[in-house]
């Protein structure tokens, strides 16, 4: 394998494999958060919304781990001075960031497997629909990773990072209508939930799985918002990137 691959694997080892080995309770924590809401929504809806809830759990997993990346980066940079050791090594900023982003996907694999098993059992959709759902999830993950990078440039303390993570996770995956269709929210209040990008992603996914009918125009708008926000945040994050400080 090439040098770049070794550097990517190093990030995956540090921030995923070794983290899971060292503190396995994180795996349980990752799984419990979305599972608890699946249970809640399923029982309250008497089973009617189990499909939507499982789809929402997938959104939570990908968005949650993406946002968590900013806390991971801040923790390694500020508490362990680990990033300083890497800055002065042959690893480039891009390789480190891509490696860290990949590490957080690896970190959710155990939870992903459990939720995918539930999805196969309870969501009756075509394979093509599942593929499309994963494309949306991937885009949503990229958005949340970029958001994480962007926020990590503002934080210098891990306590502050954790508070950002908590607030954003709540706003984007618990309060936003990702575990149920937005049509359950009364109309005057519904517009407020469109402030969260996950609302657009949930609409796309729920539409693909047959839970939420949407016009072509509404669907196109959802895609434009998600892609547009991701690109805008990516540009800002690149500009504010502090690998070698000035």
């Amino acid at each position: 394998m090439g040098r770049g691959s070794n550097q990517l694997i190093a990030s995956i080892l540090v921030n995923a494999i070794y983290a899971m080995q060292g503190y396995p309770t994180w795996i349980v924590n990752n799984l419990l958060s979305p599972i608890s809401i699946i249970i809640l929504v399923t029982f309250i809806s008497k089973g009617a919304l189990i499909g939507e809830a499982i789809a929402g759990a997938l959104i939570t997993l990908f968005v949650g781990t993406g946002i968590m990346l900013q806390a991971d980066l801040a923790h390694l940079k500020n508490d362990f001075k680990y990033q300083d050791m890497i800055v002065s090594s042959p690893t480039s900023a891009m390789t480190y960031m891509v490696g860290m982003a990949l590490s957080n996907v690896i970190f959710i694999i155990p939870s992903l497997v459990v939720i995918l098993v539930l999805a196969v059992i309870y969501i009756h959709a075509s394979i093509l629909a599942f593929v499309e759902v994963f494309m949306v999830l991937l885009l949503l993950y990229l958005f949340s990773v970029v958001l994480g990078f962007f926020l990590s440039t503002f934080t210098s303390d891990v306590m502050q990072s954790w508070s950002f993570t908590g607030i954003l996770s709540l706003l984007m995956t618990t309060i936003a209508p990702v575990y149920y269709p937005i049509t359950y929210i009364p109309l005057p209040y519904r517009y407020a939930f469109y402030l969260s990008p996950t609302t657009y992603a949930a609409e796309i996914i729920q539409n693909m799985l047959g839970y939420l009918p949407l016009s072509t125009m509404a669907l196109a708008l959802d895609w434009i918002v998600i892609i547009g926000l991701s690109i805008a945040l990516f540009v800002v994050a690149i500009k504010k990137n502090k690998w070698r400080e000035y």
């Binding site: 990030s11 060292g22 362990f80 680990y82 090594s89």
Partner: peptide
Amino acid sequence: SRAVNWMTPLQTILSYLMYR
């Protein structure tokens, strides 16, 4: 600088060398 809590000494050195 501090050795990352969740890693062992072997993992700490190994991963740093892979970054290099």
